[in-house]
Design a binder for these strands. Structure first.
Lengths: 239, 239
DNA sequence: AACGGCATTTTTGTATACAGACTCGACCAG
DNA sequence: CTGGTCGAGTCTGTATACAAAAATGCCGTT
């Protein structure tokens, strides 16, 4: 593998997993030593992660691991929802093909299956997360807009959006089942809106879906020890 | 000035002004020679402009100046409008301060002044463009969300959004006066919605404002020779 | 004449050396 | 004891050297 890609992947991983202290300054020689590459690929990785929003460039030069305020994260989720709403609108208004609708329905049915379990296991959470990701990607694809798909990747990488974090979050909160059921209702509504070509409704549902995610995060953040257990949350400064 | 910044600014300028052929592959030694820096800052600039969306990374390595389809540009404008709409909503709902509203009103009044001229000169267009930029930045500031402000900068740099392009566009199309007047009406409506705290209305107006810009661009693109005269348009492949 | 393979030559990716800027700490003066 | 200043050490930014990969063009073959 190319050193440059190795550096980006490893550095991102180290930041999100908390191997590097949130807010700390990063020195190129240190990272080069940790990742076992020279300073050049490290430098490229730093530039890239700064654009992704995980690092900030210091005035005097050098980089620091960014610390997010709670509001930053909520705004980022709102933004993501707005953006997905636009994709949903495009998907509905561009006239989805039968094949695409079938794929979308397939993902939703997959989640229905997962939720049939009486007691949700860790594996169930992982599977939900996996299908959920595919479902959202599917809606983005259905917008048929390379520009929108690309812009999605430019939005700040949400620091807690890893599968393992998802599992931990849902394994911890008692409302988990309720929360996922509501989300799935929204998925069904979204499908109908897109299938019926109702752009405005599809957009509204996608945005509301993101607002639900915001509320869920709030529940998690209220638990005092969440930060210690959920990878990524250490990047959020408690308000 | 730092070489790294020099490289980014100069490279972006060369791309947008058409000094480098759209779609052409860029070699680092060539750029280093052109910009009069070594390959290292050139490389950083390439990474950065790829994230800005002006370059694309080739599979085998190396970069190429990106060529946009017309749809890409329209989608980017729609996206920008959606983001600005979200900012406008935040601005309205967070309760704008008297000082902020005054600043916003000031910008709008400035544009009113420009539009009072019987015949709009090139200077008038430039001044309109300048104030218009301040006005839009002002709305983004009023959202009080660093995250949204930052995301705005991550959206693809629109290849024709330079002041000189604006002047050329408006000097060429006969509908110019009409177009600017409509835009200014939207500015006034937006102010009222924000001042009244009507988030949904503010958002709708901002989005409609962007759709108007889309229509104006369509008018320009229909003129066969537009590409030759307006810097940046050579990056758009005619459909 | 067209196509494919091989050699040449450029280009990228990577490593490293060097100069200037900055940081941090120790030491000295008040 | 406190504050400032000086200096050693470290870091960033930049340039450049080197190897592997890719593109190019040429020649032979079909």
């Amino acid at each position: 593998m190319q050193q440059r890609i190795k550096a980006v992947l490893r550095l991102r991983e180290m930041i999100l997993d908390g191997e590097l202290a949130a807010g700390s300054r990063l020195s190129e020689p240190m990272l080069a030593e940790l990742i076992q590459v020279s300073r050049t690929p490290v430098r490229v990785a730093l530039v890239q992660l700064e654009h992704e929003g995980l690092l900030e460039l210091l005035p005097g030069g050098g980089y620091r691991i960014r610390v997010f305020a709670e509001k930053d994260i909520f705004d980022a989720i709102e933004l993501r929802g707005t953006y997905e709403g636009l994709c949903a609108r495009y998907a509905a208004e561009s006239g989805a093909s039968a094949l695409e609708l079938e794929r979308l329905a397939g993902h939703i049915a997959g989640i229905d299956e997962v939720l049939e379990s009486d007691q949700l296991s860790e594996g169930d959470f992982l599977r939900y997360m996996e299908i959920n990701q595919q479902l959202h990607d599917c809606v983005i694809d259905m917008a048929h807009s390379p520009m929108l798909a690309e812009a999605m990747n430019r939005i700040v990488t949400l620091p807690f959006a890893s599968p393992s974090a998802f599992v931990l979050v849902h394994a911890e909160i008692p409302e988990s089942r309720h929360v996922l059921t509501i989300a799935q209702h929204q998925h069904h509504s979204l499908y109908e809106a897109i299938a019926d070509g109702e752009g405005s409704r599809a957009e509204a549902i996608a945005r509301e879906h993101a607002r639900s995610a915001k509320r869920n995060l709030q529940i998690v953040l209220r638990q005092q020890d969440a930060m210690d257990r959920v990878p990524g949350l250490q990047l959020i400064k408690r308000g």
